[in-house]
Design a protein around this nucleic acid. Structure first.
Length: 844
RNA sequence: GCCGGUGUGGUGGAACUGGCAGACGCGCCGGACUCAAAAUCCGGUAUCCGCAAGGAUGUGCGAGUUCGAUUCUCGCCACCGGCACCA
């Protein structure tokens, strides 16, 4: 055995061993209990960053731990490989997106393997490969069949200069990210998935997400945005048309003093002749600075009160929500109040607060619930009762219906770009829109597309792709040139993993066995979109009949960001850590300012390259630090000193084994008779070993608190370091302590654990051994420190045998000299005893 | 504005179900080894008063419940995140 811990050779050796032995391969084995451990797959941007390291280290510990617990573990990895950066790289460097992507994949895969991650690569998916995206197309066709995919005109972000559609994130301060031209809203035909059909189910499902962080569930609910209310038709004077509004406050219906409709409302054109005024409001549509509107001069009639009320067109009313028209109750809605003030409209109070008088004249809307007033037969009712009764009344009178609206909109999946899944639809002049027949899939991206970044979708300019025969009538036809949003790819990849690559993805045996994902791990940035889309997709696939359940992710862990302090030089701006030398800029020598601790990002240059770190300290150290510095869900502050600490621990572990190697090898046994040890340091070490097994197991099981688990392992190694074996029994205890320490350290630092496991004379991989169990009898302390308080203040600590009776504990506490000082001359009122912990004597 | 989170030593962070506040790591101080330094090892390290024994204070702030509160309740403050003219 080498005296020093040399990670380079060790890490390479064991990575090769795992690959050769195919140790991470998983098969569907229905006789065993399964555990599906999944980390969000990365976009192959070029190389991995610290966020990936943290994400994948967490997942790897869980996967390895569960394997040792006897589960059949599925732990796959793949690539979210479609997307814009590849296209941009293609434009910039004149490489094909596929080449750029696959080169990145290859490089990043090597990086992941250097981290010692236990992936079953036989299940790897790459979403840009035809064998993957053909199933996107297949699912699309199924959704189309069921009416869950449809096409409609909708507004997109359009850059007039580049003549292209931009994604929301490509619009920076209202301008194009590439040329700064002001982005306009342009109406185009777009494909949508009808996620709103599942709004209610997705919302109800939120209550079953017990294994998710509360805030993520809250964000999902918020996003779906259910609101219950009433739709009412208001007659329009001098027109047969009705104006339908939606309100969540039917109890304020008698307080309506005007109506507002969106500038894009279908009736807007009809209700006014002032086209320039309308255009002016349209231009300010959705702008938040100020509420603006204009009076159409037309009137509506409140079906409840018969009141004649003016109709306005207002920029703050959104066509996309509700009916695009609202009833305005300035007395009880702040926005309406402001609008009424501006245009001198009346304010009619119909709700009185239950306590206290309403301010009069009011200087703000009273938005709370209260008692109805001036509301005909509903006056005197409480808001809540009134809402129900008014809805009933409206339904009985047939001028309204109780309704539920959602903020959630249908999911627009059309992208006018190249590097995505072609939408499998063909347009024929005589047959119209024709789905590509299933046996013609996949519709493959053409190689000859020109990527320039300008003009329409590259697919529209590729004749070899565009021109096709109609599958129905055989006449010349055109392909759809939109590609799918890349969120489609990631909405079902976790189901793809359940089957091997050579198998079709929807073999029910496989998905029934593996799904749902038992533990999903990833960043909080996907709290809404990716997770919501995946929940929708899984339900849609369930209804199509190809998976058995609807909720894909049983437990979700959202890991915190990796942060680091920033450095700034007055002359050179943000600096990389290696550009700072003793508080000065390495380029100009000027002093640098230490900025805030922020998420690692290229723009702030506060980044650490994982490769450099592996080179210097090894993968085990890097993993250990990122798991030790903070609990997984919290942000982690990077610390070079902390990394050294992690490295020191592994050296210490190595040294402890090295120093005792002969003793441990010769012991060959882990069985010890505790009675023979008496009250020696060996007994203490044995106890510590069992206590550590208990603590580490509990910490992992309870919320994956690896930081405290590692702290406990450090304590155990410290105790091993301070122990020198004298007799055979001592050696057996030491063997037991080291064996168990290695087993427990193995998920965190797998390479060094394997190496030391071999050194102490064990056969095979440490991961083929079960996770250790603790013996409660051995973990129990013989003596405990009993805290004695007087009036809640700590006055003494006394050593007593464990399991001492309350009466005996009280007796010992009172006998203590220190305690005597504080109780002398006072009357004992009460004595509180907590078994094994403390005695509190209350005196007067 | 609404929803959620966080607040503990010089520092990252611990603390079961209301029971010793500060585990473990980092830093710092002292010591050993060394010609010396680094590395390593050993010891100390919340604050204040005190030579010490000891005492007092202390988990963002203010109340409350309790024998006892970092933990529970109420009211504030600060910071972070999400959503937001959603009718």
């Amino acid at each position: 055995m080498k005296e020093r811990y040399e990670f380079q050779a060790i890490e390479e050796k064991w990575q090769r061993y795992w690959t050769e032995r195919q140790l991470h391969r998983t098969d569907t084995d229905s006789s065993r209990k399964k555990f599906y451990c999944l980390e969000m797959f990365p976009y192959p941007s070029g190389k991995i960053h610290m966020g990936h390291v943290r994400n994948y280290a967490i997942g790897d510990v869980i996967a390895r731990y569960k394997k040792m617990q006897g589960f059949s573990v599925l732990h796959p990895m793949g690539w979210d490989a479609f997307g814009l950066p590849a296209e941009n790289a293609a434009i910039k460097n004149n490489v094909h997106p596929a080449q750029w992507t696959y080169e990145n994949v290859e490089f990043m895969k090597k990086q992941l393997n250097r981290m010692g991650l236990s992936y079953d690569w036989t299940r790897e998916v790459t979403t840009c490969s035809p064998e993957y995206y053909r199933w996107n197309q297949w699912i699309f066709l199924k959704l189309l069949e069921r009416g869950l995919a449809y096409k409609k005109a909708s507004f997109v972000n359009w850059c007039p200069d580049c003549a292209t559609v931009l994604a929301n994130e490509q619009v920076v301060d209202g301008g194009c990210w590439r040329c700064d031209t002001e982005v306009i809203r342009k109406e185009l035909d777009q494909w949508f998935f009808r996620i709103t059909d599942y709004a209610e189910e997705l919302l109800m499902g939120c209550d079953e997400l017990n294994g998710w962080p509360e805030r993520v569930v809250a964000m999902q609910k918020n996003w779906i945005g259910r609101s219950e209310g009433l739709e009412v038709d208001f007659a329009i004077e001098g027109s047969s048309q009705k104006l339908r509004i939606f309100t969540t406050r039917p109890d304020t219906l008698y307080g309506v003093t005007f109506m507002c409709i969106a500038p894009t409302h279908p009736l807007a054109e009809l209700l006014t002749d002032d086209k320039t005024g309308l255009a002016a409001i349209k231009a300010k549509y959705g702008k938040e600075e100020e509420k603006e509107g204009f009076n159409t001069g037309r009137f509506a009639v409140n079906p409840f009160s018969g009141d004649r009320i003016p109709i306005f067109i207002a920029n703050f009313v959104l066509m996309e929500y509700g009916t695009g028209a609202i009833m305005s109750v300035p007395a009880h809605d702040q926005r309406d109040f402001e609008f009424a003030q501006k245009y001198g409209l009346p304010v009619k109070v119909v709700i009185e607060p239950e306590q206290g008088e309403a301010a009069s004249p009011p200087d703000a809307a009273f938005e709370g619930d209260g008692i109805l007033t001036a509301s005909a037969q509903f006056s005197g009712l409480k808001s809540e009762d009134a809402r129900r009764k008014i809805i009933d009344y409206a339904e009985a009178q047939k001028f309204g219906t109780g309704r539920v609206h959602y903020k959630l909109r249908d999911w627009g999946i059309s992208r006018q770009r190249y590097w995505g899944t072609p939408i499998p639809v063909i347009y024929c002049d005589s047959c119209g829109m024709v789905p590509v027949p299933e046996d013609h899939l996949p519709v493959i991206l053409p190689e000859d597309a020109r990527l320039t970044g300008a003009g329409a979708s590259p697919l529209a300019e590729s004749p070899s792709f565009l021109n096709v025969r109609c599958p129905k009538c055989g006449a010349p036809a055109r392909r759809e040139t939109d590609t799918m949003d890349t969120f489609v790819d990631s909405s079902w990849y976790f189901i793809r993993y359940c089957s091997k690559r050579e198998e079709e993805p929807f073999a029910r045996d496989n998905s029934d066995y593996w799904m749902p994902v038992d533990q999903y791990i990833g960043g909080i940035e996907h709290a809404v979109l990716h997770l919501l889309y995946s929940r929708f997709f899984t339900r849609a696939l369930r209804d199509i009949g190809i998976v058995g359940m609807g909720e894909p992710f049983k437990n979700l862990l959202t890991q915190g960001m990796v942060c680091k302090e920033t450095w700034k030089c007055a002359e050179h701006g943000w600096l990389f850590p290696e550009e700072v030398e003793r508080g000065a800029c390495s380029r100009c020598g000027k002093p640098v300012a230490r900025g805030r601790v922020e998420k690692m990002s290229k723009s702030k240059k506060n980044v650490i390259d994982p490769d450099a770190l592996i080179q210097r300290f090894g993968a085990d150290t890097m993993r250990l630090f990122s798991l030790f510095a903070a609990p997984p869900e919290r942000d982690l502050e990077w610390s070079d000193k902390g990394v050294e600490g992690a490295s020191r621990f592994l050296h210490k572990l190595w040294a402890a084994v090295f120093r005792n190697i002969e003793a441990v090898r010769s012991a060959r046994t882990c069985t010890v008779d505790p009675a023979a040890l008496q009250n020696t340091s060996a007994a203490a070490l044995l106890r510590k070993t069992h206590q550590t097994i208990r603590k580490v197991t509990d910490d992992i099981e309870k919320d994956y608190h690896f930081n405290t688990a590692i702290a406990a392992l450090m304590e155990l190694v410290n105790e091993i370091t301070g122990f020198s074996p004298q007799h055979a029994a001592d050696r057996a205890v030491l063997n037991c302590a080291i064996r168990n320490a290695l087993l427990m350290i193995s998920p965190f630092a797998p390479h060094v654990a394997e190496e030391l496991w071999a050194e102490i004379g064990e056969q095979g991989s440490v991961f083929e051994h079960p996770w250790p169990a603790w013996n409660p009898a051995l973990a129990r302390d013989e003596e405990i420190e009993l805290v004695v308080q007087v009036n809640g203040r700590l006055r003494a600590k006394i050593l007593v045998p464990a399991g001492l009776s309350d009466a005996a504990a009280t007796e010992r506490a009172l006998a203590d000299a220190k305690v005597g000082e504080h109780t002398a001359g006072k009357q004992i009122v009460k004595i509180v005893v907590i078994q094994g912990r403390l005695v509190n004597i209350v005196v007067k």
